[in-house]
Simulated scan of single mutants.
Amino acid sequence: MNAPVQLTDVQKVYGTGPGAVTALGGITYGFTEGSFTAVMGPSGSGKSTLLHCAAGLDTPSSGQVTLAGQSLLGLDETALTELRREHVAFVFQSFNLMPALTVRQNVVLPLTLAGKSPDESWVHEVISRVGLAERVSHRPSELSGGQQQRVAIARALAGRAAITFADEPTGALDTVTALEVLALLRDQSRALGQTIVMVTHDPVAASYADRVLFLVDGRIVSESTHPTPETVAAELAHLSLSPATP
């Protein structure tokens, strides 16, 4: 099966000598087309490093990453930026919204920068689904932190990117909105064949994914398919991890 995101023996080491820290210890894994994968593990397990290397935001110390069919080896920053702009969307804990732009303008900004015309009906739908239909003309300074996170999520969904990387995408949201956003991500994966990689601490959030990867000390130690909040929590307990309270 096609894997739009493929890591092959990816290692990431910070520092040199006796003080060197291995964040990723040789990960080989393919995130297949249309899959929704949650990545879990304790602080320092390498979750965010895996996501950053997979997205071309960080360079592995060794190994290879293939993104949307393109090896990242030797690509300069301009080529990486163009590749991400064409194929990738992001939802990070930092919202990265443009303060002078309205909600709608922020949502369609990546499309505008790529020279693409937004699908207005789809833009309206995703803004409505994240609960901001009444806020389309507001600027970030007029929104709460949770509302700004919803804008970032709508922005990621608006372009129907082939690959979405999400780092704790629902961490700043109330429970009802968080579940709506997770359902929207799951629907995107199933209906449009998007590949979604999501880092989370929350077993409930992870249960919306098709599978869950568990990382400990920079290595994949187990994998769960058809996860439920109960099976994810049980695996975390087995690994002696401490999941955050949903």
Rank of each mutant, 00 (worst) to 15 (best):
E142M: 14
N106T: 11
L80R: 04
T8D: 06
F95P: 05
V13F: 04
G115K: 08
S45T: 12
V126K: 01
A161G: 06
V221S: 00
T177R: 01
A23R: 02
W122T: 09
Q70N: 05
A114L: 12
P99G: 05
L57I: 14
N96K: 07
F165L: 06
A158R: 02
F95E: 05
A154S: 06
D174S: 11
E168R: 09
D187A: 14
S224V: 15
S207K: 08
G145H: 10
S144I: 14
G46N: 04
S48Y: 03
R85I: 10
F90I: 10
D217Y: 04
H138L: 10
P18A: 08
T8F: 03
L179G: 01
D167K: 06
L215C: 07
V136Q: 10
I220Q: 00
V39I: 15
M40I: 13
E134T: 15
T231V: 14
M40Q: 03
R135A: 14
I196G: 02
G145W: 12
P18Y: 05
L24H: 01
G145A: 10
A206G: 09
A161Q: 11
K47Y: 07
K116D: 08
R160I: 09
Q188L: 14
D210G: 12
S71Q: 06
E77W: 02
P42M: 05
Q147H: 06
A183H: 12
L215N: 02
S137I: 11
T228N: 07
L157W: 01
D174W: 12
R135D: 06
L7G: 02
G63K: 05
H87K: 13
T228R: 05
D202V: 13
R160M: 11
F92V: 13
W122N: 06
F92R: 01
A166N: 04
S117Y: 02
Q149T: 13
G193W: 04
L239P: 04
S141A: 14
R139S: 06
G218Y: 07
G145N: 08
G74W: 02
L173F: 09
A38C: 12
A3Y: 07
V136D: 00
H226D: 15
V123W: 04
R150Y: 10
L241R: 00
H201G: 07
P42R: 07
A158F: 05
Q148S: 07
P203A: 08
V199T: 03
L192P: 01
Q149G: 10
A237Q: 11
V91F: 03
R84Q: 03
T245L: 14
V181Y: 01
Q93N: 09
I27K: 01
I163G: 01
Q6H: 06
A23L: 12
A3P: 04
F31N: 00
V107C: 04
D187P: 03
M1P: 10
D202S: 15
A68S: 11
V65A: 01
L113I: 15
L111E: 12
L185N: 03
E235H: 07
D76M: 09
T32P: 00
Y208T: 08
L109K: 00
V130N: 02
N96Y: 15
G41H: 03
L179D: 10
P110M: 07
L73A: 14
G115E: 08
S189E: 03
Q149M: 13
G17M: 12
G25M: 10
P169Q: 07
G131F: 11
D9W: 04
W122P: 09
N96P: 05
S48E: 02
E223A: 08
E77M: 08
L97M: 09
A100F: 11
A161E: 02
